[in-house]
Design a protein around this nucleic acid. Structure first.
Lengths: 327, 327
DNA sequence: TTGTAAGCGTTATCAG
DNA sequence: CTGATAACGCTTACAA
């Protein structure tokens, strides 16, 4: 059987209370007692039971992370950064892969509550904000809009859309398309699209959207992209994310469309991964380090100050441009 | 205050026991009582406290996953598959990023024990097997050797090394190098290297290793690779993983070395991600679905059968070849 | 079919 | 400086 606190107490010849005090560095204890307890713990390979501890009102020191998946390098990097920061502050992480599945997301939220997590960071977009409203738990969100009461961290998607469009324009493109999820409220891509619209209008050009949906497999996406490229209407494409942009590059190559001469492409996200392994891709870079830091800080804030002024926790972080050869 | 089981009982006008029975579907209950309890739970937004439940001897239904990171698509995909399978079986996952950090891995293991996880799947390689030996918890490992007593699932790294080498040979390469971590015992790359050696000997060719270390950043790796390629000694390279292979392709392009005419490259891992976004890369494909399935099955097995015959739980799954344009 | 009471491993309170 | 005791929220014999 696993040793428990009372076993340690017996071994050390002291009371359970004393052992607990030693573990938690609580109150005054003689050095000799401390040592005895340490020795006993060592000898029995004692590990305190977090469950019992948390049941007694202590924090679990666990944070739930809800994201749509980890195979997209963007989320992989964000999650890794979050985990790193949280670990340094003494928190562990339960990873919830919502996988574009409403039921799964709901299940996971229930589970997190049942496990008494101290807080939640969500980056999934399945559930409406309403569903999150009556969870009485500190939550912060990545990249959501209209989240009244729930702090939201995001990068400047509107500006990103503008920047991408403007960059293509300056490089000489005039038939600039937006490729991505058209008009999904609450979805960050929407703001990118708005930025595109806004800038196109300003430039006196006609906006055109080539719809590509997030939940399609890359193969399906590629078929649509090929079909689209064959028509050769565009000389510039703002892609809603880097992976889509890469499919565009692949397709262009297969169709022998010259990049950037005939077609210029700008991606979106600019993860370290993409910048390393696809350095040629011009892309809008989201400041992942800052995003992760703000998410953690915001959550920790929320967890300590029980009442903080709502609305003041929203942050929109600036994006930048990685200039590659696709433009 | 959060509602507890006794609040529900009071609301429903029954005893706590009855509520507990309803929740756990235990014994006989009148339909009317059940309904009353359900209504009360609904009304109070009751969520059972998993901690208390587990304290009372119930399983936590949590599995710890220890891996060296999630930004490498290989681990991202493996972890995602593991999470998916475990979720279906009612388990949640605590993600532990060991990050090539011995202390962190040790910390995480302690934490997992403290949180009474039901089992652990480890894919990190920092700690010696000895350290895992005296954890009295079901554990299975991915890609470890010599793990006496701990079931180990891996793909056939030896065969992979042979296959990669043979493929290059058949494509006409004669100066075939192995690029990767040289000779690290316990590390899977080692077996790949052995396969390379073995096949080179069989082919009557001279083995040559170009050392590249896992913990180096891509930028540093790339500098070494560039230097290596400039000498133009190799006409074929077996890379220990796909990401390294991509750096080789990049460097070759920059140095205007023709692929595959002047230099042929084979990668290793063959994730869906790489096959999708770098389809041109020829690579040895590890059967990720099977690996994930075996890991889960093996762990669940371990968790139920308290005594199973050791040694019969090791599995080495076959690899295959994805044929791309780099050869 | 339902209820009473003890106990899971820890910590907080109150004595000493 | 140290110890006894109750309590955290739930499950499970054992009764009724």
């Amino acid at each position: 059987m696993k040793p428990k606190l009372s076993d340690v107490a017996e071994e050390a010849g002291v009371s359970p209370t004393t052992v607990s005090r030693v573990i938690n560095n609580h109150g005054y204890l003689s050095a000799r007692t401390k040592q005895k307890v340490y020795d006993a713990m060592e000898k029995l390979h004692y590990q305190p039971n977090s469950l019992a501890r948390s049941l007694k009102g202590k924090k679990t020191k666990i944070i739930g992370l809800i994201f749509p998946g980890i195979t997209n390098p963007f989320f992989a990097e964000l999650i890794e950064k979050l985990e790193k920061q949280l670990f340094l502050k003494g928190y562990k992480v339960i990873l919830c892969n919502a996988a574009d599945d409403i039921a799964k997301e709901r299940d996971y939220i229930k589970m997190l509550i049942a496990n008494q997590v101290d807080g939640i960071i969500t980056g999934a977009h399945n559930l409406g904000i309403e569903e999150y409203q009556n969870i009485h738990l500190p939550i912060v969100a990545f990249d959501r809009r209209y989240a009244s009461g729930m702090p939201t961290i995001s990068s400047d998607n509107l500006q990103g859309g503008i920047l991408a469009t403007q960059t293509l324009y300056e490089a000489g493109a005039r038939h600039i398309y937006f490729m991505g999820n058209p008009n999904q409220k609450g979805n960050p891509t929407d703001r990118r699209l708005q930025g595109y619209y806004q800038q196109m209008t300003k430039l006196g050009l006609e906006s055109q959207v080539m719809p590509i949906f997030f939940d399609e497999t890359p193969k399906i996406k590629k078929v649509s992209i090929q079909r689209f490229l064959k028509e050769r209407k565009a000389d510039g494409i703002v892609c809603s994310d880097d992976l889509t942009a890469i499919l565009v590059l692949q397709s262009a190559k297969e169709l022998q469309i010259e990049i950037p001469d005939t077609l210029k492409v700008v991606g979106y996200d600019g993860t370290t991964f993409i910048q390393t392994y696809f350095p040629e891709l011009t892309t809008i870079v989201q400041p992942l380090d800052d995003i992760a830091m703000m998410l953690v800080e915001s959550l920790l804030n929320r967890m300590s100050n029980r009442v903080d002024k709502l609305g003041e926790n929203d942050f929109i972080l600036p994006v930048s441009l990685h200039h590659g050869a696709t433009i």
